[in-house]
Computed example of a mutant assay.
Amino acid sequence: MQTIIVLASLVSAALCIPAGPPAYGHEENYDTPAAYAYQYGVADDYSGAKFEQNEKRDGYSTSGSYRVALPDGRIQIVNYHTADAYSGNIADVTYEGTPTYGPGPARAVHAAGPAHLG
């Protein structure tokens, strides 16, 4: 009886073993040209962070823009595009607003000390 139980458990264990490597789904093909579009934005009043970006790509043709709030109060806007694999990336950078700066560093004034005559 024990022999039958041992043989039955070995047969059931053998039937549960997969025949070959596990399958993880279909294999990705990375030879096709990239095609996507996205956009996002952040506006955090607590930290003052404010920026946004968008981009669209179809093969090598890519275009997009982003905006960033600079510490001096201006907004930097970058529009960029790439036409193909050979022309490179072309960016157009502009600014909105007028820069403002806080007070400059305080100028140290030293009192004149006694003159030493030698």
Rank of each mutant, 00 (worst) to 15 (best):
A23H: 12
A85S: 11
Q2D: 13
T94E: 12
D44R: 04
L117I: 11
D84G: 04
Y40K: 13
T32C: 03
H26N: 12
G88H: 05
R57P: 00
S12Y: 08
Y30V: 06
T94G: 08
P103L: 02
L117S: 12
Y86I: 03
Y66A: 03
D44V: 01
Y95K: 03
M1G: 11
K50P: 00
D45F: 04
S65A: 13
E52S: 15
S87N: 13
A43C: 08
V6M: 07
M1W: 10
T32V: 13
G97W: 10
P21A: 12
A19E: 11
G41A: 14
A83H: 08
A14W: 03
A111P: 05
Y24P: 00
G118C: 05
P22R: 10
Y40D: 10
A111F: 09
H81R: 09
Y60M: 07
V109L: 06
N54T: 02
A23D: 15
R74N: 00
A91N: 12
S12C: 11
L7Y: 03
Y80I: 06
Y101I: 03
S63T: 07
G113Q: 14
A111R: 15
Y86L: 07
G88W: 02
Q39C: 02
N29Y: 07
T62S: 06
E28A: 13
K56N: 10
A8F: 05
Y66Q: 03
P22W: 04
A8D: 01
T32E: 15
G118E: 09
T82P: 00
G25A: 10
G48Y: 02
E96A: 11
G118V: 12
A35R: 08
D72Y: 07
S61Q: 11
L117V: 14
P21L: 10
D45I: 05
V109Y: 09
M1N: 11
T3F: 09
C16P: 00
A83C: 02
A106V: 07
I17V: 15
A37E: 13
G59M: 07
V109M: 02
P114V: 06
A83P: 02
D31Y: 08
A35L: 07
N79L: 04
H116Q: 11
A13I: 13
A83T: 15
Y80A: 05
